[in-house]
Computed example of a mutant assay.
Amino acid sequence: MANNLYDNFDTLLHPQRLIPAREVLADRSLIPDERGVYGRWFNCGLPGVPLDGTLRGGEHHLLYVGIAPRAPSKAGSESASTLQRRICRNHLGNRIASSTLRRSLAWLLKAPLQFQISWNAAGKAIMSREDEDRLTGWMAVHAAMSFVRAEEPWQIETKLITEGPKLPLNIRDSAHPFRQRLLTLRSGKASSTDL
């Protein structure tokens, strides 16, 4: 990866301080209500997830980057999502159907945390509210985040996934070898013990 990419996104890739998920759950104002790119860091191994080539910050490894809002549609409609809404509503408080990262974590942790994952009528993976709360609790202990403000975050996200550090939990635009195994796991055709 080019050094200037690291320099441009230093607060995202090499933050002085990671913000623990438990702190965000207690005070959502720690995350700006603005557009940007966020990194999700984890302080424990996830079943089968390779850590080679990932960035490390203390005990945490950067495993995923995301954006808020998504790129405008071809018709020109834009999302009103912000970093705060995306992280606090979708990742730390909603259901697995509303967050790619949350869904991946649920499937990876299905066996060790004994999650019951099923499919709704629309074909989306779902869990009970109790399991969703346990996933949020797990994230409160093991997840942290970094972010960088950006007016057009979708341009940065693609560059980070294709040219940046290894990000084994990203799926779109990813050429990471773990991508296909994660997709298979999320399809319900394999278990995390098969990884």
Rank of each mutant, 00 (worst) to 15 (best):
M1C: 05
A2P: 10
A2N: 13
A2I: 10
N3F: 12
N4D: 03
N4C: 04
L5I: 15
Y6P: 03
Y6D: 14
Y6S: 10
Y6F: 12
D7L: 11
F9L: 15
F9T: 14
F9N: 15
H14I: 11
P15G: 06
P15E: 14
Q16W: 00
R17S: 13
L18S: 09
L18D: 11
R22K: 14
L25S: 11
D27R: 08
D27F: 02
L30K: 13
I31L: 11
P32K: 05
P32R: 07
D33S: 14
R35S: 15
R35K: 14
Y38S: 13
G39N: 12
G39I: 06
R40G: 10
W41R: 05
N43L: 02
P47I: 04
P47H: 09
G48V: 02
G48N: 07
G48S: 01
V49A: 03
V49Y: 05
V49I: 09
V49F: 06
D52R: 03
G53W: 11
G58F: 00
H61Y: 04
L62S: 12
L62K: 06
V65Q: 07
G66L: 09
I67S: 00
A68E: 02
P69G: 06
P69Q: 07
R70D: 13
P72Q: 10
S73M: 06
S73I: 05
K74I: 02
K74M: 01
A75M: 09
A75T: 14
G76C: 09
S77Q: 11
S79L: 05
A80N: 14
S81E: 13
T82R: 14
L83G: 08
R85I: 10
R86D: 03
I87R: 01
C88Y: 13
R89D: 15
R89Q: 14
H91C: 02
G93L: 07
G93I: 08
N94M: 07
R102W: 04
S104A: 15
L108Q: 04
K110E: 15
A111Y: 01
P112D: 10
P112L: 08
Q114G: 04
Q116C: 08
Q116M: 10
S118C: 04
W119R: 12
W119G: 01
W119M: 04
A121Q: 04
A122H: 04
G123T: 03
K124D: 12
A125T: 10
A125D: 12
I126R: 15
S128N: 02
E130C: 08
E130G: 08
E130W: 09
D131M: 05
E132V: 03
E132T: 02
D133T: 04
R134Q: 13
L135M: 04
V141E: 15
H142W: 01
H142P: 04
H142D: 13
M145Y: 02
M145K: 01
F147H: 13
F147P: 09
V148Y: 01
A150T: 00
E151C: 10
P153H: 11
P153D: 09
W154Q: 03
I156Q: 08
E157C: 05
T158P: 00
T158I: 12
I161V: 14
L167E: 13
P168M: 12
P168Y: 04
N170W: 00
I171Y: 00
I171E: 03
D173W: 00
Q180H: 06
L183C: 05
T184C: 03
T184A: 06
T184Y: 01
L185H: 03
L185C: 09
K189E: 13
A190T: 07
D194P: 00
L195S: 07
L195F: 13
